[in-house]
């Protein structure tokens, strides 16, 4: 396994390569795609990208937590968490690509 880390730069480089816009504009488009997904999630929407996966927001109710170091009980306030469910295609490609 190569274990490289890709960043926004690699995504905008791919857009630059595939679509032929300037590097600057490619970077801005990557940013606005991530921005629109984030905004929809903040509004509480589910974002479903076919053959990629589904991002959804789950409401967590408040509970008592414990500071693992001190053992002290601390209340955890209700919060919203994001969950990502990969599509079958993504799961299959990740499983096949990392085999053996």
């Amino acid at each position: 396994m190569s274990e490289k880390t890709l960043t926004r730069m690699d995504l905008s480089e791919a857009v630059f390569r595939e679509v032929g816009l300037s590097r600057n504009e490619s970077a801005q488009l990557v940013e606005s795609v991530l921005g629109h997904i984030s905004d929809a999630l903040v509004r509480g929407e589910t974002v479903k990208i076919s053959s990629f996966g589904t991002f959804s927001v789950r409401e967590k109710s408040s509970r008592m937590g414990r500071n693992p170091k001190t053992g002290e009980e601390v209340p955890i306030s209700p919060r919203r968490v994001l969950s990502f469910r990969p599509s079958h295609l993504m799961k299959d490609r990740v499983a096949a690509g990392n085999k053996g």
Partner: peptide, 24 residues
Amino acid sequence: IVNTIFDEIVEAMARGDRVELRGF
């Protein structure tokens, strides 16, 4: 553009790579 972004992420993971999008 949109398809390239998602495809690139899937391909990276198929190679065993990480994709780190700060803030996201």
